[in-house]
Design a protein around this nucleic acid. Structure first.
Lengths: 154, 154
DNA sequence: CGTTATTGATCAGCATACTGATCATCAGTA
DNA sequence: TACTGATGATCAGTATGCTGATCAATAACG
């Protein structure tokens, strides 16, 4: 086989593995208990009041079946409210609670620190270039996963 | 919050998500049923006959508790043999079977195709640069995850 | 209006990944 | 040799992430 270090798939797994570990460590140091996925969902719900779960999933590229469990846990922690929509009784409207807002505000420094830490081996220029290349590769492959990004309503 | 597209952690998750989807699709098209993780383990066992599970985990940066299930499935598929070591009865010696060797050989083109596909939005130069930057970031963060890379015996 | 298709959500089942614990075995030392 | 610590493997429990199915509700159409 090719060297693992020569395989983009292997590098993708390793980088993601480190990114998650760094995120969890920073959040725990800050005294909170929130996963990367839960954070992204919470921030997106705050920015889009009364968003339904499918739209939420599309905005952050989650699988629709994964979102159910993630929201379950956010609700259970009291950070999010889930209510059946009155306009479409199939849909669940998600709203951030005061506790959710407080948590989000308090963990922001830890989240930012984590983003720095996971790139600590790179110069500023290299970090920017890595992000540009990741965005470009992701854009080209967006439709290849079951959970593509869906920018807006449409 | 920052734009998700400005957060390296989010980009890492998305790129890995696409990489796995592409890998699985290519392997299935080739008529096989093997995950990225199972592939990496199988290839490493072939290259290191009688390797124990801890060393295997270190070579490809798996968590030690994850490796148990992965090897379980490789054994169940008849691709790998797991035997208690005679020199150290705590350890399990892993060996690739003929079926495992055949599978590895046959899926190699699909694996290579997957590596191409997940970078299809990038030029050759960009792809090489992305991999260089990932390797550099990973090297700097290696010790931050519970499952760091352990190059060799030691 | 009634039939059909689509959509939002959930579920069962499986495969990574991790935390932390346990167990058997081995190595080092008094 | 007996004790202590380290090591290889596994397990229980939890959280993503997926496939494919199901169910209720809505939309689209004749």
């Amino acid at each position: 086989m090719r060297e693992p270090n020569e395989m983009p798939g292997h590098l993708a797994r390793r980088f993601q593995q480190i990114a998650v570990a760094v995120f969890l460590a920073e959040i725990e140091d800050a005294g909170f208990d929130l996963t990367p996925v839960q954070y992204a969902a919470l921030a997106t719900i705050k920015a889009n009041p009364a968003i339904d779960q499918i739209t939420l999933a599309g905005q952050i590229a989650y699988d629709r079946t994964t979102i159910t469990g993630v929201v379950d846990r956010l609700v259970q922690k009291g950070l999010v409210l889930r209510q059946t929509s009155s306009r479409d009784r199939r849909a669940r409207e998600l709203t951030i609670t005061d506790a959710g807002r407080t948590t989000l505000r308090r963990i922001t420094p830890a989240v930012e620190a984590a983003q720095q830490t996971m790139l600590r081996g790179l110069t500023e220029t290299e970090a920017a270039e890595l992000m540009r290349l990741l965005r470009k590769a992701i854009a080209a492959g967006n439709e290849l996963s079951r959970a593509p990004l869906r920018e807006n309503a449409g």
